[in-house]
């Protein structure tokens, strides 16, 4: 609840700042409102326990980029560039593009099954047949719980297919396992627990769960705390793994592996190097552009 209140506060600050950037016409004021918007976004990062990203946002964007922006405006303070007036046509165009972007975001957010994601984080994305049967045949299981279990889980494909992602399809698949048939080892449609071949049961992608249903399912498997915990952001302490990953090491993945000679996870060394070289080139270019142009002076 606290998290929600703080989230709405920071989200409101971010959005208000962003709108004010667009609405205001003075360039310096725009920069100030941009500080507000970026600071609010940094607050959201902090709230997600992404301390590093939040602090980077403050250091680089608010403390660096915006200062340089205002610095640049100050150097060119007089003249027609201090005020920016947009014509109504530009305003409509920008509003249209912005609305389209909001629609894209909304459609993406609404497509994702967040509750199933929470169950997967709690380790209930795929349960063993034993656990499933135990939960299904528990004493005093109410009828609604039974239907919920039957609808939410489906027998997973063969063990060697297990690593593949579940087929993405519409809600109709829940009762009609045509997609599963195409895998070859499909169980018969109908009551799932009568299929003895299934080694494990996985979440049925066709059945959208509400958050109450997800919590109920976790409770049926005796893991209600896990779902609550996975809904909350993890604690910080990401800086060392992050730094090592940038240096090309993933100790969280493969240090002290059984076979030392097995391929190690590369980390992010290559992208990091590419970005570094790119920055170096940019710096050299900037120095080249900013150098004193002696020859032109001599010519004149």
């Amino acid at each position: 609840m606290n998290g929600a209140a703080l989230f709405w506060f920071f989200a409101a600050v971010t959005c208000a700042g962003a709108v004010a950037v667009v609405v205001s016409q003075n360039v310096v004021r725009m920069a100030v409102w941009l500080i507000v918007a970026l600071g609010g976004a940094a607050g959201l990062f902090f709230q997600l326990s992404a301390d590093f990203v939040g602090a980077t946002q403050l250091l680089i964007y608010v403390g660096g980029t915006i200062v340089l922006l205002i610095f640049g405006v100050m150097l060119t303070a007089s003249g027609p560039y201090l005020r920016i007036k947009t014509s109504p046509g530009e305003g409509f165009l920008a509003a249209g593009v912005g609305l389209l972007f909001v629609l894209v975001l909304m459609s993406t957010v609404l497509t994702i099954d967040w509750n199933a994601g929470r169950l997967k984080l709690a380790g209930l994305g795929k349960v063993s047949a034993d656990a499933y049967e135990t939960a299904l045949h528990k004493e005093g299981l109410s009828e609604s719980d039974r239907t919920l279990l039957e609808q939410a889980y489906q027998p997973s494909a063969k063990a060697d297919h297990a690593a593949e992602p579940a087929p993405k399809s519409g809600p109709a698949v829940a009762e009609n396992p045509e997609a599963a048939d195409s895998h070859g080892s499909a169980p018969k449609p109908g009551d799932v627990h009568s299929v003895p071949a299934a080694l494990a049961y996985e979440l049925n992608p066709g059945r959208r769960l509400t958050s109450a249903e997800a919590a109920r399912l976790a409770a049926l498997f005796g893991q209600e705390k896990a779902v609550v915990a996975s809904a909350m952001p993890a604690q910080g302490d990401t800086i060392r793994p992050l730094g090592l990953a940038l240096a090309g090491l993933r100790p969280d993945r493969d240090l002290n592996k059984v076979h030392a000679k097995a391929a190690t996870t590369p980390g992010y060394l290559l992208p990091f190097e590419i970005v570094s070289v790119h920055l170096l080139v940019v710096l050299i270019g900037a120095a080249y552009l900013a150098r004193t142009k002696r020859r032109r002076v001599e010519a004149s």
Binding site: T56, L58, V67, I70
Partner: peptide, 8 residues
């Protein structure tokens, strides 16, 4: 990061 905001 926070200290660098003072310059703003």
């Amino acid at each position: 990061g926070l200290l660098s905001l003072e310059v703003v």
